[in-house]
Design a protein around this nucleic acid. Structure first.
Lengths: 177, 177
DNA sequence: TGCTAATGAGATGTAAAAAG
DNA sequence: CTTTTTACATCTCATTAGCA
């Protein structure tokens, strides 16, 4: 959701809350009906599937319709993913693609990993897997003023703001060095 | 009335808002060729191709009858578009064409963007910066050496050059602080 | 079985198309 | 041109299911 670059942005805050969820609406009573109803929507079908990372891809053909294919992410790949995540937890599409190339996974797989990782982070979990990386969310002390992306170093935060929130930053008087 | 009619700000719940943004697409380090360049070739859309079926079939045929092609406008392009928009939200055909050349998008795409942006502004979805305090054009006295974009402070100009004209700047020996 | 990759529904934003 | 609607892209959140 792209925050619209020029939106006044209300932002922020959100602190946790989370989980309370389902809160939504009540107010407006009956509201929902309207929106959800008609929406034809999303059918998006996901792509998924077609290829696993490494290897063989054409073998299958038939049976892939019912079986969900689970990618196994190696410790080496996780190392890179967490490193990139620590720089920017909400990468743009292009960055996502570059990460995917670096680790050798499909963009969609990397995208899902980032989504799941953000969710895990929100829930207060953080991983400690096998290889035990030194990654710790506690070390990300910079949070974007305009979205919740986290960064370890200011230069990465500035790069993120320049690419995604320039107008808001301009208006807010945020000084991008 | 600047307040968003629909945003829930009442009671404070506001579902986490999430402004996480996306809008993505920034090609990472490659020269930014704009995507629209000559041909729709690789449409970003990806996949579709394998949706399951067994053998690949029929993918091509022609393009889906109702496949609407959605252009993804990059943050760099948006920067230029908003800059131009702040100068004139209703450009003439000729100006529109020059803007299209600057950002590397088709004239029609830029035209639609201006139409949608004017509509959004009317609906109060973003506060016009032209009258705003912090982005007044009269004060933008720095002009990009490589395109006509105007900036108020050098850091913004540098960021723009870094993101849009790095190669030219390199060749020109322009010193990015 | 626990952790987590994948999926799906719902929400949001907006480019493009359709109406006016 | 403006206004309204549609189609897509992507996010969150909740849930399902694969594998060590």
């Amino acid at each position: 959701n792209p925050a619209h670059p020029m939106l006044p942005q209300m932002n922020g805050l959100h602190l946790n809350n989370t989980l309370s969820d389902h809160l939504s609406n009540s107010l407006s009573g009956l509201p929902h009906a309207s929106m959800s109803s008609g929406k034809p929507s999303s059918k998006v079908l996901n792509d998924v599937s077609c290829e696993g990372q490494g290897g063989g891809r054409e073998v299958e053909d038939d049976q892939r319709r019912d079986k969900r294919q689970r990618t196994t992410i190696t410790p080496e790949q996780l190392e890179v993913l967490y490193q990139r995540y620590s720089l920017d937890s909400n990468p743009t599409r292009g960055v996502l693609e570059s990460i995917a190339r670096d680790v050798g996974l499909k963009r969609r797989v990397v995208q899902v990993w980032f989504q799941n990782t953000r969710a895990r982070e929100r829930k207060g979990q953080f991983r400690s897997t096998t290889t035990g990386t030194s990654f710790s969310l506690g070390l990300n002390h910079l949070r974007c003023l305009f979205c919740r992306a986290l960064f370890k170093v200011k230069s990465a935060l500035d790069a993120h703001i320049r690419s995604r929130h320039w107008a808001e930053a301009e208006r807010a008087g945020y000084n991008l060095s």
